[in-house]
């Protein structure tokens, strides 16, 4: 799916606060969000900081999205468990999947292997994005996010968003 189309899908679902830390897989999305005033992407120094920003923005009436590489999920565990999950803050995590099927640079291989287990053990609902089902997947995640007041994750493999 084209990045512009994807960003518009997020916008029409009510997401209106965007922050995160870049990944090459997410670069077209972040570039688009940074250049468009409607998205006004806030560049965070670390992924847990981005989750803090998202929590604040949610409490002030926004519906936040946090973008990160899966390495940043490691950085974010405490922010998720002792803040977003504890205080029941809904947010969409867009997480890139580096190290998918063990085909990547060495630093990505461990997290590439255990990322889905991490999300599962934290009970964060997650969907692995598929181009043909993306709209439906976003709808399902949004629904769970609002109903359960929880962070939810959409996992993006290389090439799904161009």
């Amino acid at each position: 799916m084209n990045h512009e189309h994807f960003c518009q899908l997020l916008k029409t679902r009510g997401f209106d606060f965007y922050t995160g830390v870049p990944c090459s897989i997410l670069s077209s999305i972040i570039k688009y969000m940074s250049e468009d005033n409607v998205f006004s992407y806030v560049s965070a120094t670390r992924e847990d900081e981005a989750i803090g920003l998202a929590v604040g923005a949610y409490m002030a009436g926004k519906q936040p999205v946090v973008l990160m590489q899966n390495s940043g999920l490691g950085q974010s565990v405490n922010a998720l468990t002792s803040l977003a999950l504890l205080y029941k803050i809904p947010m969409l995590l867009l997480i890139s999947w580096r190290g998918f099927e063990g085909k990547d640079a060495p630093e990505h291989l461990y997290m590439g292997k255990c990322m889905m287990n991490f999300l599962d053990i934290m009970k964060i609902p997650a969907e692995i994005a598929e181009t043909t089902r993306l709209t439906e997947q976003l709808n399902q995640l949004s629904k769970k996010m609002c109903k359960q007041k929880t962070p939810v994750a959409l996992i993006l493999k290389k090439g799904v968003i161009t």
């Binding site: 606060f17 922050t19 806030v42 965070a44 847990d48 900081e49 981005a50 989750i51 803090g52 920003l53 998202a54 929590v55 604040g56 923005a57 949610y58 409490m59 002030a60 009436g61 926004k62 936040p64 405490n78 922010a79 468990t81 002792s82 803040l83 504890l86």
Partner: peptide, 20 residues
């Protein structure tokens, strides 16, 4: 009152201040 997530109080506050 931020009970856990040590280090994140200014990030939470920044999120509020940008959104409001």
């Amino acid at each position: 009152y931020m009970l856990g997530s040590m280090g994140l109080a200014p990030a939470i506050g920044l999120g509020v201040s940008l959104a409001k």
